[in-house]
Design a protein around this nucleic acid. Structure first.
Lengths: 195, 195
DNA sequence: TAATAAAACTAATGGTATTAGTTTTCTGAA
DNA sequence: TTCAGAAAACTAATACCATTAGTTTTATTA
């Protein structure tokens, strides 16, 4: 009655990510997970500490994925100073929309107790944006750079989050709106830093 | 055994809103609601159709509240064309941060079946922003105006959502960041519409 | 005042997560 | 090669959730 399916942490998290992306983060439960892995729910406790731990690990997976595609995006840029920001923005939105469950996990850091690893990855993401923005705002002080990073992040998260919630349904191309807002924001911060 | 507490739809939704704002939308359950109202969970079904209906009503309450403060914000403006947008932005963020549970309900429109009323309120919100933005972009065509509205909404939702998720913790004033990003975005869209 | 409708209740069902305790299976050391 | 212990599955049980069915109490109103 226990043919030892060969479960392990990695396979569990892979299944969790797949469920999250396909049917939503809220439907990652021990029940759905166990069913997909052909196992009874309590068996999962041999490999994982419970649902909260699974959620935390999904957060980390999402941050890692996001960081990876954004890192790749800046690496591939030929002219580092000009195109880094749009490349970062496109990579961010693409990843979020293609991995809605992991992206949602990325945001829903329940305020309390992120692990060290999660803090670390989140900081790397901020640095990536910060470094991309800096050459654009040569005369900006540290506070203004932080303002600019926060605004950029707000724009990226707001756009993707609204798309994922089913927003922006009017008959106007969403991708064009995205490029429009990124261009506008960049033009705006550049102008502000000159003033 | 049933002293008839005097429950009704309005009192239930008031309790639901209070729980949502104080301990999070996810902790609005029939159990917490019944406990707060000194009633057993099944009694709630005499007034309300179940948890999904309560969630829908919270969405509507949130949209109504948001629309009300934004409407008030534009009404109070002396110079209609200049300051409407910052006033709308500030009203939006203030409401969202002061009513986190209702605001969350506002966004989490689970894609499927919003009621007519919800659709209506959501459209009124878009109009409010659209009308605020139009005098700013006199030479913009309809598509560009929609792009601009979407960007503005992305910025507002992204900022508030990240704040409510516990983000933006560095030692730089969040309100200043908010004003910075609004100013930058407005300067940017104005410049784009001229080009 | 008696009948009816409304609002509360209890009890039961089926779904969750989690814990405890048990059985099976694999592995590594004698 | 065997067998003892660890690991991984299991069953059973607890506690909590939403919801439904059926019952009792309360209020209204004819």
């Amino acid at each position: 009655m226990s043919p030892r399916v060969g479960l392990d942490d990695a396979r569990i998290m892979q299944a969790a990510a797949s469920i999250a992306n396909e049917t939503g983060l809220q439907s990652v439960t021990l029940a759905t997970l166990a069913k997909q892995l052909n196992v009874r729910p309590p068996s999962l406790y041999n490999h994982v500490n419970g649902l909260p731990e699974i959620r935390n690990k999904l957060t980390l997976l999402g941050l890692q994925g996001l960081q990876a595609v954004m890192h790749e995006a800046v690496s591939k840029q030929k002219q580092p100073e000009s195109g880094a920001i749009p490349a970062l923005a496109i990579a961010y939105a693409k990843y979020a929309i293609e991995h809605p469950g992991l992206y949602e996990a990325t945001i829903n850091i329940n305020a309390r107790e992120h692990s060290e690893e999660i803090q670390q990855k989140a900081a790397e993401l901020v640095d990536l944006v910060s470094n991309g923005l800096r050459p654009f705002l040569p005369s900006a002080d540290e506070a203004d750079l932080i303002h600019a990073v926060r605004g950029f992040r707000s724009l990226l998260h707001g756009y993707t989050s609204l798309i994922l919630s089913g927003g922006f349904n009017m008959a106007v191309d969403r991708d064009e709106s995205f490029l429009y807002m990124i261009r506008a924001y960049m033009a705006g911060i550049q102008r502000q830093s000159v003033l």
